[in-house]
Amino acid sequence: MPAKRRSAPIRVLIAKPGLDGHDRGAKVVARALRDAGMEVIYAGLRQTPEEIVRAAIEEDVDLVGLSILSGAHMALFPKVLRLLKKEHPNGIKVFAGGIIPDEDARRLKRMGVRAIFGPGASLEEIVRTAEKLARPSS
């Protein structure tokens, strides 16, 4: 008996790689994505790139959102991107937020981070971008 196909909500993993403990931004974004109807898996603080990639695979997410304020983004993000590509070649897209200088942001985008939000980015913009990244056709 074929079950009716229900519309699948967008699933997003929000994680904080590295050692800074400031997760207010990540929580505000998680909540905004929830209010837009997404299923947000909140992985919390101090996640290693390996843990983040493992969680993304187990949770079968469409997107991974990384939040970082410690300045270690150039050490950690490329590792997440590399591992994700290796473990999940069909592509889970990555976006990021935090304190990331413009020059670094340009480099990270060249490496494959799809969008980067600094302080002052609006929640509407983040939600819209996440929707577009997860469902490019709609």
Binding site: R34, A36, M38, E39, V40, I41, A43, G44, A55, E58
Partner: peptide
């Protein structure tokens, strides 16, 4: 959420496992 249909699934936060341990699978 009965309002947006969305949710924040936070149970993973507590999970601790050894690096590379494939003997645990966690799904929210």
């Amino acid at each position: 959420s009965p309002f947006s249909g969305g949710s924040v699934l936070g149970d993973r936060i507590r999970l601790e496992r050894a690096p590379g341990d494939t003997g645990v699978f966690f799904r929210s």
